[in-house]
Simulated scan of single mutants.
Amino acid sequence: MAVILVVDDEEPIQELLKFNLEKEGYTVLVAGDGPAALTMIEEKHPDLVVLDLMLPGMDGMEICNRLRQNSKYRDLPIIMLTAKGEEIDKVLGLELGADDYLTKPFSPRELLARIRARLRRAKPQTEEAELVRGDLRIDLNRFQVIVRGEAVELTPKEFELLRVLATHSGKVYSRDELLERVWGYEFAGDTRTVDVHVRHLRQKVERDPSNPEYIETLRGIGYRLKE
């Protein structure tokens, strides 16, 4: 799982982010100021940085600018946090190389969704291009699913739902987790959306949707792809 560096001088924010990120399986590093953050990046090589704008001594703008001037860190994903809401701060942060911007107070769920989106975009092209689970083949580059030798057509959300389940087959995902991973922070619906998409997905990939061999329901918990 990815390593996330949280750079913030407020201890409650550090603890909030550390708790929520570790709960998702990320390894979390914490720095309280700019020099400590730059040292940690040099030594620990995090996969993404959550960077507060207002820091003592060296602010987030300067840290972001230094990282982008260094060819080693030009592509390091940076999500900037700030208590300010002025448009000029957002524009400056993005111009200096931040990949995304979130204003405090923020929802941890929203931040997690943005982190996942940035990490997906940062993945090298050499990563696994196909997931094979029994008679189920998922081509991640062509967005194609083949079941028992035949291609099936899925909607984008059905494909992403199947990809999430297949990436960690055997892992049980709650409906809230699937909502967050597939629909993201901008989604305003409820968990019934997940049930509807699972039902449609089963109709397309299962021999008998009433007795699924791939997508298993754990009553009161959620869903998983059978190992």
Rank of each mutant, 00 (worst) to 15 (best):
T155L: 06
I138M: 05
P77S: 06
L140V: 02
D139A: 13
R68A: 02
C64Q: 08
G134P: 01
L131G: 08
L140Y: 01
K84Y: 15
R66G: 11
P77K: 01
L102Q: 11
R120L: 10
D139T: 10
S71P: 07
P124F: 13
I138N: 02
R133Y: 07
D100G: 04
L102F: 10
R109N: 13
L119F: 09
E110R: 06
L119A: 12
E62H: 10
E153T: 11
A98Y: 05
F143N: 14
D139F: 13
P124R: 13
E130G: 06
E87I: 13
R66S: 08
L92C: 15
P105D: 03
I79L: 06
V152K: 09
G93A: 10
R74I: 12
I79G: 00
D100R: 07
Q125M: 14
G85Y: 14
A113G: 14
L140F: 01
G149A: 06
S71K: 08
P124D: 12
V145D: 05
L81K: 01
P105K: 01
E150P: 11
G134C: 01
A113R: 04
P105G: 01
Q125V: 12
Y101F: 08
M80P: 03
V91Q: 14
A129V: 10
E110G: 13
K157Y: 11
D75A: 06
I63Y: 09
L136P: 04
E128W: 06
P105Y: 01
T155S: 14
V145R: 03
A113I: 02
R116G: 12
L111W: 02
I78V: 09
A117K: 12
K123M: 15
P156K: 02
L96T: 11
P108C: 12
R137V: 05
L67I: 02
P108S: 11
Y73A: 09
D139S: 12
K157T: 14
G97Q: 11
N70I: 01
E153L: 08
A83W: 04
